[in-house]
Amino acid sequence: MKQYVILVFTSSHAIGIEQKLKKMGVPCKLCAIPRNLSSDCGICVRFDETNLETVEALVKTLSFDIQEIIATNY
C-alpha cells in the first residue's frame, strides 16, 4: 500500500500530529525524515493512503503550518 509522510518544521509538530491522529484512531508512525526529502535531522509522521483524506482534513485545523505531505517508498 502506498505510504505518505507529513513533513513538518519541527519534531514538536510531528509529535503533536501523531498524538492527534492516535486519538482519532488513525494508524501512524513517527519516523526519521528520509534524507532525500529534507536536510532536517528531525522526525516525520508516516501513514498509509487509506487515511490521506483524514490527514489532509486534520492538517487544515492545525495552529501551525506543515511543510508538505509526500508519497514515499520509505
Binding site: 519541527t10 519534531s11 514538536s12 510531528a14 509529535i15 503533536g16 501523531e18 498524538q19 513517527l30 519516523c31 526519521a32 525524515i33 535531522c41 528531525g42 522526525i43
Partner: peptide, 16 residues
C-alpha cells in the same frame, strides 16, 4: 526534538 531514535521520540512525546 533531536533525532528520531526511540529514546528521543519518547522524550518528545513526554514533552508534548
Amino acid at each position: 526534538g533531536r533525532g528520531g531514535h526511540r529514546l528521543a521520540v519518547a522524550a518528545g512525546e513526554i514533552l508534548y
